[in-house]
Design a protein around this nucleic acid. Structure first.
Length: 609
DNA sequence: GCCGTCACG
DNA sequence: ACGTACGTGACGGCA
């Protein structure tokens, strides 16, 4: 059989090699693929697409680059060029070959686009976008334009410039298209060399190769899988909400004495603070604040603020979820496909967009109703697995605080224990109110506590808040010491790290502006904790994904919500998958306290969680 | 395009 | 006098 080759290499057939990625069974570092001589060569590639919005995106061509100055453009759906099948066969012979390492910028996107063409990228990958992210997670933009500008001092021509007066990329003359697409592939190849060295210098190579790169495949599968929602159920909710909103509007206008746009904070301010003469409690940049905490306070002296809050709740649920989710259901799959963004957050968490599946309502009756519309496919069950108090457990481990460690080892309620400490009473005497206060303090510690922040949340004076904080640190000297050490290290190194070595730069930590400096200090305290929790669940996701593949199970990971994983499980796999998921999550890394995962199952997300 | 607001962890 | 809890994304209003 004749093999297409672009670079003149000889290609041995590797029939039967079905492995996707093969990495050590658990944890980091150890093994750098192309350095270990596992790959024949590195190949940089990039997809040229029609652009527009993602749903109607279609692949026009693919550029392949083996070394600088040596790149090819394979037209797939270009107005001029190859027959589609021939083109795809050439592409497959490279991108499905596990003995070739692939380089790209935002590979998950390209991998997913190619899957729609029946091309399944396999093997070792290097994503330069994620390289840039690991080097500085504070940057808001890791696009190829930006990264090439920062590291190569190269100003790319904009996509719109290339399209020019043509209708789409498919109509750009093929010579020009080749230059443009090949340039992207070349840039990624150059960036890989440069960023790779920097990652190695900073000790980030383990995180890169053993966590973020494998995770690309996991996230691609999750996005591709999507989740089923019951559209008729949501439409029903929309009708109910409409009726409620109409009633609320009338009530509000009656209380206000006039009609106005309730959604306009400016118009609302006039009603509240001018017409009704209520006391404005806080200012924003543009006027008086009408935020939730303020309206809750004002609700004590007038009926209107409470109704405004009710209105806002329902309006939010309707516009952001009820009316939007059905529109985003994919026509082909009938399911909802989010994007999991791997290079957005400063701490190492994922984010989710279009739609954001990480902020689907859960509280209140409407939260339940909305989550009831997220369901398992026929013959399947949704399984939700939740880390319990994961950030506090991580704090216990990182600070090595004997009190916290003992609390988790003996499985007592940690907030109740903190309450007993704070009030100096036995656990049995702790009231619900005391426990709630202690819970807020525990969260506060993770957020980089301050008397002002705590007083604001607890609605007590900063002085009282300061007493709580003092009492907490008296009982948890190790936590206090840990925080101080973290700050010292941030000040001297200019960054903080997670347990797995993920970095967050802290450029403002020595600022002469106290406000700026204190803000940087809170970030420096919070990031190692939030970031370690992010590392933990990422390792668990890769572990689960591998085990599922190993055992040939049909179960799919569907969603990640920071400390929760949602899986869609065929009924007959449920028992096995429950154990598998719990094990991988609880043993992803080893702490000096147990890691606890709670599992729930059901036909809907509401039932499972 | 920014601001205020609010949904989630 | 100053005055913030950490991390996100999406909406409507308004320049």
């Amino acid at each position: 059989m004749k093999q297409h080759t672009l670079f003149g290499e000889t290609k041995e057939s590797d029939a039967g090699n079905e492995s996707i990625v093969t990495l050590p069974p658990s944890n980091l570092p150890s093994f750098i693929p192309s350095e270990a001589g596992m790959c024949k060569f590195d190949l940089s590639f990039t997809i040229a697409a029609t652009g527009k919005d993602l749903t109607s995106d279609s692949t026009v061509g693919i550029a392949l680059c083996k070394e600088k100055g040596k790149a090819y453009y394979v037209p797939i759906r270009h107005s001029q060029g190859l027959n589609l099948t021939d083109a795809l066969n050439i592409i497959k012979s490279y991108l499905e070959d596990t003995s070739i390492a692939k380089i790209g910028h935002n590979l998950k996107h390209d991998i997913l686009m190619l899957r729609k063409e029946g091309v399944h990228v396999k093997g070792i990958i290097y994503d330069t976008m994620i390289g840039s992210y690991l080097l500085n997670s504070n940057k808001p933009d890791h696009s190829l334009e930006n990264v090439a500008l920062e590291y190569l001092l190269y100003k790319k021509r904009s996509y719109l410039e290339v399209i020019g007066k043509h209708h789409s990329f498919a109509d750009v003359p093929i010579d020009e298209a080749t230059l443009y697409a090949a340039e992207d592939a070349e840039l990624a190849m150059e960036l890989k060399e440069l960023l790779f060295k920097k990652l190695w210098d900073e000790g980030l190579e383990g995180l890169y190769f053993n966590m973020e790169m494998p995770l690309i495949y996991v996230l691609a599968d999750m996005e591709e899988a999507g989740i089923k929602i019951q559209r008729d159920r949501i439409r029903q909710l929309s009708k109910e909400l409409d009726e409620e909103l109409i009633k609320l509007r009338q009530k509000i206008f009656l209380l206000s004495g006039e009609e106005f746009n309730i959604n306009s904070p400016k118009q609302l301010s006039k009603i509240l603070f001018e017409n009704l003469g209520l006391k404005p409690l806080k200012k924003t940049k543009t006027g008086y604040s009408t935020g939730m905490d303020i309206l809750e306070e004002l609700a004590k002296s007038h009926d209107l603020p409470g109704e405004i809050l009710n209105y806002r709740t329902l309006f939010k649920l309707k516009t952001t979820y009820i009316d939007t989710l059905p529109v985003l259901v994919n026509k082909k799959t009938g399911r909802l496909h989010t994007s999991f963004n791997q290079t957005v957050t400063a701490t190492g968490r994922l984010s989710s967009s279009e739609p954001n599946v990480q902020n689907i309502p859960i509280r209140g009756p409407w939260g339940t109703k909305i989550r009831e519309a997220f369901v398992a496919e026929e013959g399947h069950i949704l399984l939700s697995a939740d880390y319990s108090q994961v950030e506090l457990r991580i704090l216990a481990h990182m600070s090595n605080d004997s009190g916290l460690i003992e609390a988790f080892k003996t499985n007592v309620d940690v907030h109740t224990r903190t309450a007993a400490d704070l009030y100096g009473i036995p656990k049995e005497a702790v009231t619900q109110d005391m426990r709630r206060t202690a819970k807020t303090v525990n969260f506060g510690v993770i957020y980089g506590i301050s008397p002002y922040g705590l007083s604001d949340t607890l609605k007590i004076s900063p002085k009282e808040a300061g007493l709580f904080i003092g009492e907490y640190f008296k009982k948890h000297r190790s936590v206090q010491k840990y925080i101080e050490e973290t700050l010292v290290s941030a000040r001297t190194n200019g960054y903080v790290t997670t347990m797995l070595g993920r970095k967050r730069l802290t450029p403002e930590i020595n600022s002469s502006n106290a406000l700026t400096r204190q803000q940087a200090e809170r970030m420096a305290i919070n990031s190692p904790i939030q970031g370690t929790a992010a590392d933990l669940i990422k390792i668990a996701m890769i572990g689960i994904w591998r085990r599922l593949k190993e055992r040939g199970l049909k179960t799919r990971l569907i969603l990640q919500i920071h400390d929760e994983l949602l899986l869609e499980v065929p009924e007959n796999e449920l028992r096995e998958v429950k154990n598998l998921v719990k094990y991988e999550m609880e043993n992803a890394i080893s702490l000096s306290v147990p890691i606890k995962v709670e599992i729930g199952c059901g036909k809907s997300w509401a039932e499972a969680h």
